[in-house]
Design a protein around this nucleic acid. Sequence first.
DNA 1: CCATGCAGTTAGACACATCTAACTTTTTCC
DNA 2: GGAAAAAGTTAGATGTGTCTAACTGCATGG
Lengths: 155, 155
Amino acid sequence: MGGKRQLSASLEDYLEAIYVIIQDKDVARPKDVAQHLDVAASSVTNALQGLVKRGLVNHAPYDSIALTERGEELAVGVLHRHQVLTRFFTDVLSVDADAAARCACKMEHAVCDVVLNRLVDYAKFVKHSRPAGVRWVEGTGFVADEHLSEGGANA
Amino acid sequence: MGGKRQLSASLEDYLEAIYVIIQDKDVARPKDVAQHLDVAASSVTNALQGLVKRGLVNHAPYDSIALTERGEELAVGVLHRHQVLTRFFTDVLSVDADAAARCACKMEHAVCDVVLNRLVDYAKFVKHSRPAGVRWVEGTGFVADEHLSEGGANA
DNA sequence: CCATGCAGTTAGACACATCTAACTTTTTCC
DNA sequence: GGAAAAAGTTAGATGTGTCTAACTGCATGG
C-alpha cells in the first residue's frame, strides 16, 4: 500500500479534481477542472500534459479527460488523505466543516502514511467511544466524560 | 498573533533554519543554513536576497545573517507550528519521534491557525488526563482507560 | 452551411527555487 | 604578508507552475 509519493502538490490537485468531477458528472473536461481549481484554462492544458506524460491521465487534444488505472489509484489516495484529515478535524478537533476542508486541502499533500494511519485509527476510536470520551466544549476546551468503557480500535 | 501567511514554504524553511541556528550557535552563516537544509550554498544566497527584500533578514554580502524583528516573529511562528505538530504526533498519536519530525517539517507550511490551536488544546488535554485517557497500544490500536476524571483543558 | 462563440491549445512571459561552475572575498596559517 | 583553502556570490541553466494573449477546433443555430 502507499508507495512513495513523488507527484507535486499541484499535479495531485489536478488528479483529485479530475477524479471528483468524474464522480460527479461522469465526464471531466478541462473547463471543469479549471473552475474546480480556480486556475486558467491554459494551466489545465499544461498540467494535463504532465499527467499524460506520467501515464496518469488519458487525454487527446480537445477531448475529455480520463484517468488511467494508476492515475485513479493516486487520485483515490489523495482524496483519501483529504477526507481523513477533514474528518479528523471535524470529528476529533471539532473544527467547523469549512475550515477543516480548507486546511485539509493544503495538508493533504504533506501528510505521511504513518501519521495518516494513526489519524484514521484515532478518529475511529474516538467515534466508537462517543459520547463517552473526549469532547470539545466551546469556551472551555476539550473535556473528558466519565466512565469511559472498553477500547480497542484495531491496529 | 498570526496574521496571514504569504511566505513560500521554502522561505519559511530558511527563516526557521536561521532562527534555530542562531539559538544554537549565536550566529548564523550561509554555510550553516545550507547544511541545515541540505541545499547548495548558492540557493541560500538566493533565498537570503528574497528575505532581505521582504525585510525579514539583515544580511550584508559575506557577513553573517540576522533576523529582523518581523523575521524573528515569523520564524517563531513557523517553529511553533513545527513543534505543535511534532508533539501532537508523538504525544497523542504515539508516532515515533523521527517520523513525527519529518512529517511535521512538511505539514508546518500547510496547517492553519484554527487547526493548530485545536491541536494545542487537544494535546494539552490528553497530557493532563494521562495515564487515564486514550493510549496507543502496539498491535491493538488506541484504547481508553477507565474512570476518566475531570477535564477542562482551557479554550 | 457557415458564422459566431465558446472550449481548448499554443506561445511567450514571469516568478520561484534549485543546481553547477566560475569567480570573488575572507580566513587561515606558515 | 601572501598563498592556499574555505566561504560566499554571481551567472546561467533547468524545471515547475502560473498567467495573458492569440490562435485553433468544434458545435450550434440562424
